[in-house]
Design a protein around this nucleic acid. Sequence first.
DNA 1: TTAATAAAAGATATTTTTGTCTTTTATTAA
DNA 2: TTAATAAAAGACAAAAATATCTTTTATTAA
Lengths: 145, 145
Amino acid sequence: MGLFSKTCEYAMRAVFYIASHSADASRPGIKEIAENINSPEHFLAKILQKLSKGGIISSIKGPNGGFYIEPNGLKRPLADIITCLEGDEIFTGCGMGLSYCSESNPCPLHNEFKKVRNQLTHMLYNTSIGEFNSELLTGALTLNK
Amino acid sequence: MGLFSKTCEYAMRAVFYIASHSADASRPGIKEIAENINSPEHFLAKILQKLSKGGIISSIKGPNGGFYIEPNGLKRPLADIITCLEGDEIFTGCGMGLSYCSESNPCPLHNEFKKVRNQLTHMLYNTSIGEFNSELLTGALTLNK
DNA sequence: TTAATAAAAGATATTTTTGTCTTTTATTAA
DNA sequence: TTAATAAAAGACAAAAATATCTTTTATTAA
């Protein structure tokens, strides 16, 4: 397995896709999104429901409905997606799974592992959801396969 | 979930424990190891079998038997444990799970994500299995809970 | 008001990960 | 040779993650 769960992988790809279509008012539906990010449709639906409840994305039912992101939402960091779906353990947990491990009582790996976590945290908080919109729209970047 | 699977967490803790007891010829058994790193005994047994087949650790059956690590093995990097158990996907895979993603055809996150992976790779290749032996023996570091 | 559309929600299935229990095999020492 | 020890191996169980299918609810437009 990669660094992130399938849930988070699909979520990031889907949110990027939705973000890139939020300028036009097209509001892609689940089917379109799933096809374009290559994910199982109904599994993705659950994920988008959670993100919707968490306020990361918005949705409208019925004809012409679908998913979109508020202009302000495009500024939010990628980290919000992860936190919404799986909490912040990936940002804070001990590398070896030791619950006592902390700054004041570090495990063997703590100091080196902290650098990794900090890099990850930095990346996820300094990348915005709308950051790649133009590249995605021009087709310079893709999200499937 | 943390960055690593339970399997890898237990494995790293167990290997550190075995390493720290490889100077004396005591050869801890599964039960002792499991107690000291706070892991399910039989689940850990499977993990140690894999590490044993992979040549990371060694074992002897019967009375006075148990697990140990060859002097040379103490110099091996922590990364070998992860690779032995779960391959190298964590070192090489795309952050968003895209198979096309590569240096020449990068996904949106590629460049930032690479830094995280590089930091992780650096940590795991520059930390040796025997690195914390003295601290573990004096009790300055612990591996349980 | 009705039919069509699309997300939300619920139910169920499959796969993977994690965990437990039992039997077998190898080794030692008496 | 026998009894005890301890890892190896196999079978099974539980939990979590991933995936699929069906029904319900909200919305739109004709």
